[in-house]
Amino acid sequence: MSSLSIQAHDPDAESIIQGILTIEISLMGTDASGAMMDASVSWWPEGMNAPFYMNEEIGEDLSISIDTLSLEEEGSTIKGSFSAHLCRKDSFFAEADTDDCLPVEGHFDTALMRAE
């Protein structure tokens, strides 16, 4: 099982903790052909202590496609795309507000670093 976390930061945000998009993936295997066991996409427009947007579960509201994945000791990389339907949550334990949702899509092509 491989657990991957990809973060994108808004370069125009007032703070490094604002405007963060996170993609979390749990993959059975170590390459692009591995089965995705769990995944989520979240967007933190005002940081961790403010309302945020998140998909609730993997399914029709979330699609992540991994084109290439290399998990080498040095030179690990991932490339792919995603689309998701993110709904507002006031906190981790709050119910999602399905009247305040955003469609998001994008692509990623980045180096990966092993967590210590």
Rank of each mutant, 00 (worst) to 15 (best):
1 M>D: 07
1 M>G: 11
1 M>V: 05
3 S>L: 10
4 L>K: 00
5 S>L: 00
5 S>A: 01
6 I>K: 09
7 Q>N: 05
8 A>Q: 05
8 A>R: 05
8 A>W: 10
12 D>A: 09
15 S>R: 07
16 I>V: 10
16 I>T: 09
20 I>P: 01
20 I>M: 04
21 L>E: 06
22 T>D: 00
22 T>I: 02
24 E>C: 01
27 L>W: 05
29 G>K: 08
30 T>M: 08
30 T>H: 13
32 A>M: 07
33 S>G: 06
39 A>W: 03
39 A>P: 03
39 A>S: 15
40 S>V: 01
41 V>H: 11
45 P>A: 08
45 P>T: 07
46 E>I: 01
47 G>H: 03
48 M>S: 15
48 M>D: 09
50 A>C: 07
54 M>S: 14
54 M>D: 04
55 N>T: 13
56 E>N: 13
57 E>G: 12
57 E>A: 15
58 I>L: 14
59 G>L: 03
61 D>Y: 07
62 L>K: 09
63 S>H: 04
63 S>F: 04
66 I>D: 05
70 S>P: 02
71 L>W: 03
72 E>D: 14
73 E>V: 04
74 E>F: 04
74 E>Y: 07
74 E>N: 12
78 I>W: 06
79 K>M: 05
80 G>E: 05
82 F>G: 11
85 H>P: 00
85 H>M: 13
85 H>Q: 12
87 C>L: 12
87 C>T: 11
88 R>Y: 03
89 K>V: 01
89 K>A: 14
90 D>K: 12
91 S>F: 05
92 F>K: 04
95 E>W: 01
97 D>M: 05
99 D>V: 00
100 D>F: 03
100 D>Q: 12
103 P>Y: 06
104 V>R: 13
108 F>S: 10
109 D>W: 12
111 A>T: 15
111 A>W: 08
111 A>M: 14
112 L>E: 13
113 M>R: 12
